Computed example of a mutant assay.
Amino acid sequence: MIITEMTRSECLELLAAQRLGHLACCRDGQPYVVPVTFALDGNYLYSFSLAGQKIEWMRANPLVSLQTDVLGEHGTWRSVVVNGRFEELPDRIGWKHARDHAWSLLSQHANWWEPGGLKPADEGPTQHVFYRIMIETMTGRRCVAAQD
């Protein structure tokens, strides 16, 4: 097996094709990683969540990372890591277009609200939050079968 770097366009292609990633945020030196659904548009990854720990932490520290990957046959894989900045899309004047855009991108796919829209039953009702991550840097690697 050979591991190689992916180009920016290859990274964007993988991000555009994927829906599930792992979002990392950090508060007071403690990392927190959760699965999220996302949609790529331009230099942004759009997502959705109910209010909770990840939203609180990203409000406190907007620097985040998102990782996604795809497994191929015979041990091959591709993986992309995005470093970026969280930006909430609040439900108030001036943000309607961005919120509607996020909803239109995400809702193109079945079960787009999972896992961000699910909470344990005992937590009760909570507000939903649309947000985006502005891509600042991105790296990708792939593992391919060695040529004989």
Rank of each mutant, 00 (worst) to 15 (best):
46 Y>H: 08
46 Y>F: 13
46 Y>R: 05
46 Y>E: 02
47 S>D: 11
47 S>R: 00
48 F>V: 02
48 F>T: 00
49 S>K: 00
49 S>N: 00
51 A>D: 11
51 A>V: 10
52 G>V: 09
52 G>H: 03
52 G>R: 07
52 G>S: 07
52 G>W: 01
53 Q>F: 00
53 Q>S: 07
53 Q>G: 08
54 K>D: 08
54 K>V: 01
54 K>E: 07
54 K>S: 05
54 K>Y: 01
54 K>C: 04
55 I>N: 01
55 I>C: 05
56 E>D: 13
56 E>L: 09
57 W>G: 10
57 W>F: 12
57 W>S: 10
57 W>N: 10
58 M>V: 10
59 R>M: 06
60 A>N: 08
61 N>K: 08
61 N>V: 09
62 P>M: 14
62 P>K: 11
62 P>A: 14
62 P>N: 14
63 L>P: 00
64 V>S: 07
64 V>D: 09
64 V>P: 02
65 S>H: 09
65 S>V: 10
65 S>L: 10
66 L>E: 07
66 L>M: 11
66 L>P: 10
67 Q>I: 13
68 T>F: 04
68 T>S: 07
68 T>H: 01
69 D>L: 01
69 D>Q: 05
70 V>H: 06
71 L>N: 10
71 L>V: 13
71 L>S: 11
72 G>P: 04
72 G>K: 09
72 G>A: 06
72 G>H: 06
73 E>Y: 04
73 E>F: 05
73 E>T: 09
74 H>W: 08
74 H>C: 11
74 H>N: 13
75 G>Q: 05
75 G>K: 04
75 G>E: 03
77 W>G: 03
78 R>P: 02
78 R>G: 03
79 S>T: 10
79 S>H: 06
80 V>G: 06
80 V>K: 00
82 V>G: 03
82 V>H: 02
83 N>H: 15
83 N>T: 15
84 G>R: 11
84 G>D: 10
85 R>T: 15
86 F>M: 12
87 E>F: 14
89 L>N: 03
89 L>M: 07
90 P>F: 04
90 P>W: 01
92 R>Y: 11
92 R>T: 15
92 R>K: 15
92 R>D: 14
92 R>L: 15
93 I>N: 13
93 I>F: 15
93 I>W: 14
94 G>P: 12
94 G>Q: 08
94 G>Y: 08
95 W>P: 08
95 W>Q: 12
